[in-house]
Computed example of a mutant assay.
Amino acid sequence: MARYDLGPGAAARSVAGFLAGLPADRLPRDGRFLAVFVPDGDPLADVARHVERTVFEAAFGNDEAVMTAEYAPYERDSLFVLVIDRERAVPAGAARIIDGRGKTLDDAPRFIGVDAAGIAAAHGLGTGRIWDCAVAAVLPEYRGDRSGLEVSSLLYRTYLIGGAQAGVVHSTSMLDRGAYRNLAMLGVPMLPLAGSQPFPYLGSPENYAVYLHFPDIVASVAARARELAGVDTPQARAGALASHMVATGEGIDDRILLAVRL
């Protein structure tokens, strides 16, 4: 049964146990952070849920009861990316991917005034595998510096690697304003879902329902890295580095473990 009530201590013990049981040849020789792709039912999946609930409760008031009610229909179809701080043996960030028709396509129609058939027609969803990127969350202590850049880059890069291996064609997501702006900065090619406008959703006053054609993402993010490389400001340099890592995997691909069959 999915759990959102793990405390920091229980989450840390689960992470420490995972790291202790990992064969030495599967651990990268250096790098503080490690990303693991796990399915529902894996003990680390509840650690990822702990990260989700911690971040969403602080930001939007979405406590254990809200998270359980909102995501219960999707638990069995959920895949999780958990980023681990190896130095402290604690979680740093998490993402949830729902394989197949996910929460965005179920929830968006009542907010955007377009039914499921209209959304499918707008984006050619009749064929091809769909992933819904339902959650991406970084704990507060890992935001705003080089650590935060690495944690978020690992989340996005692992999603791209996993999706490519799984043959994903379409991706959907519900994004609060901050997440939307971060992905736009990376150069992720997002379209408003069926031409929709932002709307309030689950405590977020400005939420964006978006569609992504999965095969286009890497080239678009790589183009943004080249664009930002010519701008000499701290923000542009950080953006160029993040886009480059997400598009190419340089410096981070050896820190990603796909511990799940896709």
Rank of each mutant, 00 (worst) to 15 (best):
E150H: 13
A45F: 01
R129N: 02
V55F: 04
R255I: 02
P200T: 07
V151H: 02
R224G: 01
R101H: 13
A45T: 03
G251Y: 09
A229M: 06
L202E: 09
D30A: 14
D25E: 14
V83L: 06
P200H: 03
E250D: 14
R88M: 06
I256Y: 06
R143G: 07
R76I: 01
A222N: 06
E141H: 12
F60V: 03
R226V: 13
V138R: 01
A16K: 14
P192Q: 05
S173T: 15
Y156S: 11
A236C: 09
I97Y: 03
A94D: 05
Y71L: 15
G93K: 01
M190P: 10
V47A: 02
S147V: 00
T233V: 07
L105G: 02
A45W: 00
G93L: 04
L262Q: 04
T233P: 08
D106L: 05
A240D: 08
G195Y: 04
D63S: 12
R157D: 11
S153W: 07
D46A: 05
R49P: 00
P23A: 05
A242S: 15
A236T: 10
D106A: 14
L191M: 11
G31C: 08
A45S: 15
A225M: 09
L19G: 09
R110W: 01
A58L: 12
A94S: 15
A65E: 15
P73D: 10
D176E: 10
G21K: 08
V231W: 02
V221Q: 06
W131N: 11
D254Y: 00
V15C: 09
E206A: 03
A45D: 01
S243I: 12
A89R: 13
T68C: 00
G126N: 11
E57N: 14
A136T: 14
H123N: 10
T68G: 07
G251V: 09
G118F: 08
M245L: 15
A238L: 11
R146W: 05
L105Y: 01
W131F: 15
P189A: 09
F33A: 02
F199P: 00
Y142H: 13
S152H: 12
G249W: 11
V90G: 00
V81A: 04
A65Q: 13
P205I: 02
G61I: 11
A222C: 03
V246P: 10
P91D: 04
R237E: 13
R226G: 03
P192W: 04
R88L: 12
I119H: 07
H50E: 05
A12R: 14
G128C: 08
V218T: 15
T158A: 12
L154D: 11
G21L: 08
V83W: 02
D99R: 10
D77E: 13
V168T: 11
R157W: 11
G118P: 08
R110N: 04
A134I: 05
A242F: 03
I97A: 12
T248E: 09
A219K: 09
P8S: 10
T233N: 07
A122T: 11
T104Y: 02
